[in-house]
């Protein structure tokens, strides 16, 4: 969720300036995501399918409809279209190496008696991050532990995809070791279906990161990759504080590669493991 990627050029569209500001405002209110002033191309690319679905002809018409009707469903469609879902299996291998070689062995040692671990993929999108973790845990012999992996996202549509655990060839081609593909997936026509033994390790639920996050419980590791950079400074700080509250003592937060400069010093200690940077709860 919440990731406005792509080279948002300042391509000219016929979107009127007041409507651009209206869409900025609408997306910010609904999701907390800040759309900069030079993303005309991105707005057009993402929202024209919504325009067509509503049988309209332009983004200006869409704005008029949004103003006139206040239909929650239409606002939801706009927000979901503006939040990209690009994700891949084992994105940033250095972080998974850090998990495999240092963090998980430490946690296994600490929880040898309890045999229980919990993880949160805080912008799970279509589930690749949460499922990558589930597969890694199985590979490390934790298949019979009590494992809780929660994936959350703003978009119900993308969560439905995540729950299904069915992926396109191009998705399993990217970042997923072929040894995992043959072990944990079944081919179904042109798609690849994740096996039940992995799917059942993960639950998905809708969540806005700006809401109260304590409802989820305490986690040993939280993934919140490439999300915070799209919030304004104040929202980012509030979410970081909440993420700290959602971590068990000594738990770790994993941010995206572009977020290593996040000033998380108040609540986290920066830890380097190999090429990866992690944040340990103080």
């Amino acid at each position: 969720m919440a990731v406005l990627t792509g080279n948002a050029s300042s391509g000219k569209t016929d979107l009127q300036p007041e409507n651009y500001r209206f869409l900025q405002d609408c997306v910010y209110k609904e999701s907390g995501i800040v759309i900069d002033s030079d993303k005309h191309y991105l707005l057009e690319a993402r929202l024209m399918p919504v325009v067509k679905k509503q049988q309209l002809t332009s983004l200006n018409d869409l704005c008029n409809l949004l103003r006139a009707t206040r239909t929650p469903d239409l606002r939801r469609q706009v927000v979901e279209a503006m939040t990209t879902h690009e994700t891949l299996f084992f994105r940033d291998p250095a972080q998974y190496d850090a998990l495999r070689t240092v963090l998980l062995p430490q946690l296994i040692e600490q929880r040898r008696a309890l045999r229980s671990l919990s993880f949160w993929s805080a912008a799970s999108s279509s589930g690749q991050e949460a499922y990558s973790l589930a597969m890694l845990l199985r590979e490390m012999g934790l298949g019979d532990w009590s494992i809780r992996i929660v994936g959350t996202d703003l978009s119900e549509q993308i969560l439905d995809r995540a729950r299904a655990g069915k992926f396109l060839q191009i998705e399993v081609n990217r970042g997923l070791p072929v040894s995992y593909l043959v072990k944990y997936f079944n081919r179904q026509g042109l798609d690849w279906q994740l096996k039940e033994e992995v799917r059942r390790m993960v639950t998905f639920q809708k969540l806005d990161l700006r809401d109260n996050l304590r409802q989820l419980g305490a986690f040993d590791v939280v993934f919140c990759r490439n999300v915070l950079i799209y919030f304004d400074q104040q929202t980012k700080k509030r979410i970081l504080e909440q993420l700290r509250g959602a971590l068990a003592p000594g738990g770790h937060l994993l941010l995206g590669g572009a977020e290593t400069g996040v000033s998380a010093v108040d609540w986290f200690e920066r830890v380097s493991i190999g090429q990866a940077v992690l944040y340990r709860a103080r």
């Binding site: 060839q169 081609n173 072929v178 593909l181 043959v182 997936f185 079944n186 081919r187």
Partner: peptide
Amino acid sequence: TQVEQMMTALEAGANEYVMKP
């Protein structure tokens, strides 16, 4: 793109496998 072919390739000594396109 068959799982059996991927397993055969791995057993033969391939380290990774990419499906076209």
